[in-house]
Each structure stands twice: as C-alpha cells, then as structure tokens.
Amino acid sequence: MRVLVGGGTGFVGRALTQLLRSRGHEVTHVSRQGGKDRISWEELSYSGLPLCDAVVNLAGENVLNPFRRWGDAFCREVISSRVETTKTLAKAIADAEQPPRAWVLVTGVGYYRPSLTAEYTEDSPGGDFDFFSRLVSSWEAAALIPGSPARGVVVRSGVVLGRGGGAISQMLWPFRLGLGGPLGSGLQPFPWIHIRDLAGIVCHALESECLQGILNGVSPSSPATSNGTFAQELAAALGRPALLPVPAWAVQAVFGAERAIMLLEGQRVVPKHTLESGYHFIFPDLSGALRDIVA
C-alpha cells in the first residue's frame, strides 16, 4: 500500500511511518519542505495528489507548547495547522483522477465535554462548547468529501504517551527528581494512549477495508485513569514519590486559562467502536505502558 502522510515527521508520524514500513507499505510525507520520500504542502496544492492508496493527516501545531503565549495569533496558527491542511488534502483527494481507497484523520477527544462522571463513546455528542471542541468539529468537517469513494475514518486521540516525545517528555525530569505530582485537584479524568497503539489504530484503519467512521484513540483502561492516578503510576515506574501537586493557578499562569482547561479538566472516553472493529491494544493498562516508556 502507498500511503501519503500529512505532518508525518512529528512524534506520532515517526511511529506510524516505522509501523507502516515494517508491514511492507510505502510512505511519503507532506511537510513544509520537499525532499526524499516527501513533498511540500505547496507542491500538493499546485500539482495535486500523487498516486497513492491511502492518505493520513497528522498535521497540527502543538497546542501545549509552553514557549508560545496563548493569544489570537497562536489560536489562528493552531486552527490553520489542522483545518487548512485537512482542507488541502481533502481537496486533493476530491480532485484526484484515481482517488485513494482510505482517508484517515487524527483529531482529539477535546470534542467531548469535560466531566468527572460522564463516559463518552464514539456515538456521544459534543463539539460545540469551547474553543477546542469547536476546533475538532471544524477539523473533522474539513475532512468530509461528499461522494468520494475513499473510506473516511476519524481517530479521536487522547493524550499520547511514548518515548522521545509527546506529553510525557515534559514530565519526566520533574518526576525523576521527585518533584512530580498531580495537576490541580488530580481528580480530572486523564484520557491516554500509548504511541504504539495510536499508530496501530491508524494502521488498522488503513488495512481494514470495511472500516469507516469515528474511532476513539484511547486505552481501554483510560476511563478509570485520573490525573492523580497517572502521577502516582509514573512516579512508581520511576521509583520516585509523587507528593508535590501543581496548583491550578500555576498551570493557568503558564498556559493561560483557556488552554489550561486541557490539563485541569478531562473526559472519560471509551474506545467502544475501536474494540468492536477488532483492534487489540498492545498497552491496555497504564502501568505496563509507563514501564515500557521509562525502561
């Protein structure tokens, strides 16, 4: 299978590329600049979709970049990096003489409203209550191609955990020094997934000829995981205590009140359709996932 991956040079993209190539698939990336096994977004806009069997979009500016101030300019960049790249790929698919068989978009569980009690499956409503939910709605709407023969799959990802990147890369040093702890109350749900499982779900979506629609990209044990539980498990995996909670005001001071919601609130998300589709998780439990990452 020939797979075109938008934004495939980042953390998730590297894992997906490695998995796809290990399974005998050819991978071409769409990035800011062209090169070996890649084309630029500008080239894609002008020349159209190269011949391929499937397209995946992983592109998106890191929302939780602590070095970027949360303001109108950064918000526009966050939106554009997701919605506009998705529109570009969708248009290229729609205009292609030989369209691909599959079109997969990775978005986020921010689509669902944060709650300490509610559980969400892929059939649950959401998408219109704050900046991030509306972002996911616009993002997924941009992927729709009426009348296209390409199977459409959307994977709503939780917090991605893995070596060498993702959320955990910024947490390891404080926890290794014994300075880690829960954020805010620590009671908020923590929807998570191991990087190998997120890549695995995308690969599963590409290779399953009848699969389409929404898949929740979270671990099966994710609904039972709180931020406090995560902090305790990470500290245990490192052989350190987790005694120093980070107050909500400190999180808001670093990230801004609107963006801090992503860390101080959370959703209990169930991968119902993902499991029903036949995907078998490599890391269903948090302790095993963390042992693999910090080993």
Rank of each mutant, 00 (worst) to 15 (best):
G6V: 05
V12F: 01
L16Q: 05
T17C: 11
Q18W: 09
L20I: 07
V27L: 08
V30E: 05
G34D: 10
G35V: 12
K36I: 12
K36C: 08
R38T: 13
I39A: 12
E42H: 11
S45W: 06
Y46V: 12
G48L: 12
L49C: 10
A59K: 13
A59D: 09
G60T: 08
L64Q: 10
L64F: 05
R69M: 04
W70E: 04
W70I: 05
D72R: 15
E77Q: 15
R82E: 08
E84P: 02
T85I: 07
K91F: 04
I93L: 10
A94R: 15
P100W: 00
P100S: 06
P100C: 07
V104F: 00
V104H: 00
V104G: 01
V106D: 02
L116S: 08
T117S: 15
S124T: 04
G126K: 01
D130A: 03
D130F: 09
S133C: 00
R134F: 02
R134W: 03
S138W: 06
I145P: 04
P149V: 03
P149M: 07
G152T: 08
G152E: 11
G164C: 07
G164K: 05
I168C: 00
Q170C: 01
W173Y: 11
G178W: 13
L179I: 13
L183Q: 06
G184P: 05
G186V: 11
L187D: 13
P189V: 10
I195D: 00
A199P: 01
I201W: 00
I201A: 00
H204E: 02
H204W: 01
L206G: 02
S221R: 14
P223A: 11
A224L: 14
N227Y: 09
N227M: 05
T229I: 14
L238P: 11
P241G: 12
L243T: 13
L244H: 10
L244W: 15
P245R: 10
P245F: 13
P245N: 09
A250V: 13
V254M: 09
E258V: 10
E258G: 03
R259W: 07
A260Q: 06
L263N: 06
Q267S: 04
R268V: 08
P271M: 12
G278K: 08
L286G: 12
R291C: 11
I293S: 04
I293W: 11
V294C: 08
V294H: 10
V294K: 12
